[in-house]
């Protein structure tokens, strides 16, 4: 049983998502970044996490945070993408944990490309 209660996430808040350097090629973000893992796309809610915290969570898994960038996205924009649901799923070690549930087909992934921005960049990234 997780200690934290599940909360409703308002549209005006942000979500942060780690991106491994392998999902960048020739300086551009690969749309395969947007995919489900165990039922949802894992993100952190800005109420309880900043971009740095999101990136550094990989240290607990013996991974190098320098290999990761962090994307930010507005919750309201995510909810405008068809069939996406923003669900707060706090974990014992991460109160901010939030899944974006729903299929990540070509349509959703193209639309995600249009709403994300880089909070922490990776080397050689081309920013628009």
């Amino acid at each position: 049983m997780v200690d934290f209660e599940v909360e409703e996430i308002p549209d005006e808040d942000s979500l942060y998502m780690r991106v491994h350097k392998n999902w960048i090629r020739d300086g551009e973000l690969n749309p395969g970044t947007f995919r489900n893992n165990l039922g949802g796309m894992s993100t952190d809610w800005s109420k309880y996490s900043g971009p740095e915290q999101t990136r550094n969570r990989v240290i607990a898994y013996d991974k190098d945070p320098d290999n990761y960038g962090v994307l930010g996205m507005n919750v309201g924009d995510v909810r405008k993408i068809p069939d996406q649901a923003v669900v707060h799923k706090p974990l014992d070690d991460n109160r901010s944990h939030t899944d974006i549930e729903g299929v990540k087909e070509t349509k959703q992934r193209v639309l995600y490309l249009e709403i994300v921005n880089w909070e922490i960049t990776l080397p050689n990234l081309i920013q628009e």
Binding site: R25, N30, P31, G32, N36
Partner: peptide, 8 residues
């Protein structure tokens, strides 16, 4: 176009 690894 760009050819990228996709999901799964």
């Amino acid at each position: 176009p760009k050819i990228y690894p996709g999901p799964n």
